[in-house]
Structures are given as C-alpha cells and as structure tokens.
Design a protein around this nucleic acid. Structure first.
Lengths: 350, 350
DNA sequence: TTTTGCCGTGTAAGCGCTTACACTATGCCT
DNA sequence: AGGCATAGTGTAAGCGCTTACACGGCAAAA
C-alpha cells in the first residue's frame, strides 16, 4: 500500500517517466500534465522513496559527521552550525559519535560505507597514517573539522595563535611567572596551544621554565577534564616557584585549577591569574577568562565547504583557519564587573 | 571502478547470489566458497553499497531522531544513550535538529520521508493533532522521548513526581512560603511539574497561593532561560509576601533566580532556598539543589524500545516512565559541604 | 537400485526510482 | 508542400543488491 510513481502514473494516465520528471528538475513537462500529476500525487499521499532515489541518482542525500565525545559543548555548537546550514539544503546529517578517540576508527568505517553519504565531516581526530589512507580513498566530499592534514580540506581554529593570545594577555596584565597546564600531548590542539604559549614567552623575551609546564598523561578526554587541571595546579603550587599566571589548554582544566587554588587558600585573580580555553558555558558562570573559538561559524563554514565540494568534485583543496578571540573575565581582571556579566569583554575577533 | 558483487562473482567464479549470501545471514554456503569469496572481496577492497542494500531489503539501516534545541545539555545526554546503544547494532543515527519548536514540523517531515529510516525518535515535542496524525501514519517504528501520547510508544520521566519531590524537599527543610517559577505552560513538562508542586502542597495541607506561581510567557526555549527565571524572581521579591523557598521548572531559570536573589542582597539558602530541575552541568558548579533526570538511561531505553519495535513490528505499545531523583546541594542546605563537591547528595533513585 | 531429501548454487525477478534515447506531434521556415 | 526544429511523452535499461525458486548432485533411506 505504499504509493509509488506507478500508482500515480496509472491514475494520471501518464508514464512513470513523466511522474518522475514532475518530481525532479521539471525537465520539459507541459503545465497541464504537471498540475495533473501533482494533484493525483497529493490525493494519493505520495512521497518519494528516499533510498530508491539515492540509488537511481547514484548520489545520497545524506552527509555524515564523525564526532568524538559528543558530550562536549564544543562539538554541539559546531553541530548547530552544520545543521543550520544543511537544513537549507536537501542534505540530512548522519551523526557518528565516538566515546573515545579509539572508537573513532570504527565509526569512521561505518561513516565511509560506500553509498551511504554524499560527503563526510571528520571532527577533531588526529590524522594517523591509516586514517589518511582511508579518507583519501573515500571518493566523496570530505572536510576535516578541528583537525588538519595537508591535501585534505579542513576548517580549524588557530590554536597556536590562541595559546599566544592567552599568554600575552597574562604578560600584559603584569604576570611574571607563567605556567601552562596542558592536556595530553597526543592531542594536536593541545600541542599547538603550548607552542603558542612558548612563542609568546619567547617574543616577550621571557625565559621558558620547563617545570612550569605540567602535561597530563590522562587518557580520559585526553586530559581535557577537571581532575587533570586540579592535579596539575596542585603540582604547580607545590613547586618551589609558585606561578602568578596560568594558561590552561581548556576551560575544564582551568576550572579544576581554580578549585586547587581556592583550596590552597589563594584566589584568582589576586594571587594567580587564570586563562582557560574554549569558552564553555560554565566559563561565564565562574567568571573565567578564556579563549573563545568560533564554534558555530566553524560548523557553518565546514558545511559550506562540503556542499561546494559535492557540487564541484574536482575543486581544489582549501584549508580554512579561523582566529579565536580572548574573552576577559574575573579570573584575570578586577575591572570586568563582578558577578556573572553575560559575555565578558571580548578582545580580538572571531 | 567501484567494485560490486558482480566483480567478485566474476573473479571468484560464482554467481552474484552466492556473493550476496556470503555477505548476509550466510544462508548455506560451503565453507570453501565462502572463504574464497571473502578473499576475493578483500583483494578487491569490496564494500557493500549501503543504499542498494536498503532498497533491496526494503529496510533502511538508519534511524532518525527529531530534536528541538540540540544545544540543550539534556538532549545531548539522551543522544549519548541512544548512540551508545545503536552503535552495537547495524543502525546509524540521522539527526534532525530544530532550533525552535516551530521548526519541528518541518524537520519531522524530512525525518518521516518514506524509505529513509527504519524508525524514528521524536524528542520533547508537544503532540499536536497534526503531528499525531503524521506520526500515526508513519509505518515504521516510532518512540517518543520526553513527550507523550496515548497509543504511541514513549519514554518519559515523571515530571509530576519530580515537581512533588522538589517541593516536599523544601517543606521538609522547613520552608513556610513556597513559590514556583514556571516556564511557559505550552510546555507539557512544565505543567506537570507545576501539578507536582501543587500536589505536594496539598498533601502537606498547605494552602496554595496563586500569587506565588510566576508563569513565563516567554517563547524563547519556552521560558526555559535564565532571564525568565531572573524576571520571575524579581516579581516574587517585589510581592507583599516574600517566599522562603522556590522551585523552578529548570536549572537555568533557577540560576536566573539566584542572580535576582543575590542582587537583592539576599542569599540562598539562608534567606531563600532554591531548587532547580534537570541537573545541568552548571548546577554542580553553583551548588544548585535540583531534580536530576536519568537522561542517559532515557536514551538507552528509547533505543532499546525502538529496536524491539523494528524487530517485532506488531508488538504492543509501551509507555516507559522513569523517576527523577533529588540532588541536594548548597542552595537548600548548609550541610552538604561547601564549594563544588562533584555530585551532591543524591536522594531517591533514577 | 530407486527414492527421498537436503545442500549448495545459479537464474531471474524485483526494490522504486532516474534518465538516455526514441518517438510523435506541432509549428515554422523555405 | 516538404523539411526541420522542438516540445512533450513513453520505453526500457539500469542503480547494486536481495531472495524466491529451480535445479543438479550426492548421501541416506528404502
């Protein structure tokens, strides 16, 4: 009882080709026939069969996204950008979420399944050789989001710049002894942020104290978690030279660090200034100065990029790099008004 | 150059039917043939074509979820439950997110597209007549999540109970003048929570003061936003009898209320105790007592329900109702330890 | 030895749609 | 009047796979 184009063709006294034409790019069909077919289709409650359509067209109307740790606010925001952009097209979004980075490979395989999608997004996954091989063999559109590989399209933010901006901010507010609380170096963004930290120090002519860089070896979320920030801060506080400014490679780590600071009877920004990274929702509420990434825009741009790849498959590759921006709040400044002013003072542009 | 079963059949010297059998329920194929086919397939780098498979099987390996306001932590958690459960099956998840409740209908139409999905989840959408009609006409599996309609499968939490528990908690801690900060009554959960509030008052023999129920008329997220909580609290503070206990229908509203309280020079729990609803991440950080919903579990159960519907289509309907649980934190108690103990004291079971 | 049955495999008919190609009018140009 | 576009429609061949049915062969049963 599902109604097909045959039913319509029968009832309207035309051929299935004509019915199909009506429902497609309307290649030359007379106005009469068209409206007649449309009417019959409406009467019968016809709906095109998505799968059959894809098969015949040799092109799916689905695009896939492989996302590790969907729980993360960062990804959800990007997803919004994707969705809002895709909603205006014929494409629907298949979401493959991996709980850990190890699960990414499995989900990627599912996503790369032939005939499934017209294109795919890969989020925040380190580009191992094996992955690059698989992705390069994929014949459809592909955009990396928040990760990078030469020769593949990507939309990323400039983590090096972000790390640098955060560090420079601390220097400018008068910090003398800077420290870095870093996530697991397996994470490429973490490494880039660290490089930015070092670069800012170097260009300010400051010496770089290796004991002031605490690196997580945590596997859970690659060290992007509160506990790892807490532990790192404790370690810093126990060191011989206590820092007066701390950059963390994520907000959650920064929040852990703040807890350690508070427990030590100290406070931010008075004793130690703290900068996070990401601008998650909580950052606002705890007044955390942070580096905001243009997440929504990343989603939009990634989607646009994918769509244009689908349209013109042979197109040259493009790597889009967006700049993060500094959001100044309580943990580095006494001037920003207390309490939870909604957004903080935004410095720089996204 | 994409390799099909014909290529394999040729090279292996068998028919396409045999190749197909190897890749399916392995209906009677000799061990020799099987391993030979598998080998050839591996050599050629064969991958089954997802779309063709769905068409031939008359059954998609995709399930869809229609989700309003994906930004919401609540939905993301449920999604995790869905994904984790689906990951173990052959099904992939198509996500249709609507930015507003009005967009739900459009996204629902896309999701209901014939031949697209083997089943669909509809999240948190009021069941208007039109929607019920469309959903009932859908011939595939269907599970409502966080919304309800008799005759359709659903997984919900008991909002009435949640409202009641929150209210009773305030009464037990000695509050005398209870108030309710309520979201837009278009939202069914909000109404249910209010009913719970009223019921708890009634069964405690308290009188119900209508002026102590402030209802949002906000359209933005149905009044589930910080501003609406803030405004409501201001209104309560300006009233002739100031409440000493407030239940909010969501954490974000509660957080707005807390701000209003602080700005009025008062504090929680000393002057006014506050209970939220949802247990979003921020709740922990501001020490908000709240009602936690078993979000992840909802996702798991919804997925399981859908899967079993797909397996046995004629099965009887089931409405699953999960109980929320109270999480006691600073805003209603001085005994819970200060600062941000991670989880709060959990009372009741999820 | 003949019968019965089952196992392993092939043949072919779809699934519901798109689209190249062919065909028939019709209108227009010479 | 004949020739030639051109617009509108139909015919049929797929898209890559699944699966009902048929068939040959061989082992067990008679």
């Amino acid at each position: 009882m599902p109604v097909t184009i045959y039913d319509i063709a029968n009832k309207a006294g035309v051929s299935i080709a004509t019915v199909s034409r009506v429902f497609n790019g309307s290649t030359r069909v007379s106005a009469n026939t068209r409206s007649n077919v449309l009417k019959v289709a409406a009467d019968l409650g016809y709906q095109p069969h998505a799968t059959a359509r894809s098969l015949a067209r040799r092109k799916s109307s689905i695009v896939s996204a492989v996302i590790p740790m969907l729980t993360n606010y960062f990804f959800v925001e990007i997803l919004r950008g994707l969705q809002d952009t895709l909603a205006r097209t014929e494409y629907d979004l298949l979401v493959f979420s991996a709980r850990t980075l190890d699960e990414v490979d499995g989900q990627m395989d599912r996503a790369l399944q032939r005939g499934q999608a017209a294109g795919i997004f890969v989020f925040s996954s380190p580009m191992t050789g094996e992955r690059v091989t698989k992705l390069s063999a994929f014949n459809e559109a592909l955009v990396l989001v928040d990760c990078f590989h030469p020769g593949l399209d990507s939309v990323t933010t400039n983590n090096l710049e972000g790390g640098e901006v955060a560090t420079r901010h601390l220097l400018e507010t008068g910090c003398e002894r800077l420290a870095l609380i870093m996530a697991n170096p397996e994470s490429v963004p973490a490494r880039d942020r660290r490089d930015g930290f070092e670069r800012a120090l170097a260009s300010a002519g400051r010496e770089f104290d290796p004991s002031h860089v605490v690196t997580s070896t945590d596997e859970d979320h690659h060290g992007y978690n509160e506990q790892s920030g807490y532990d790192a801060m404790r370690k810093l506080l126990a060191g011989k030279v206590c820092p007066d400014g701390v950059v963390a490679t994520s907000d959650v780590q920064a929040i852990g660090a703040l807890r350690a600071i508070r427990e030590a009877g100290l406070s931010a920004p008075e004793d130690i200034r703290v900068v996070g990274y990401d601008d998650i929702l909580i950052a606002r509420h705890v007044g955390l100065t942070t580096i905001r990434q243009p997440m929504y825009e990343m989603g939009v741009m990634a989607a646009e990029r994918l769509l244009s790849q689908i349209e013109v498959p042979t197109q040259t590759r493009a790597q889009t790099v967006l700049s993060p921006c500094l959001v100044v709040r309580r943990t580095t400044s006494n001037d920003v008004g207390s309490g939870e002013e909604p957004s903080g003072q935004i410095v720089g542009r996204a």
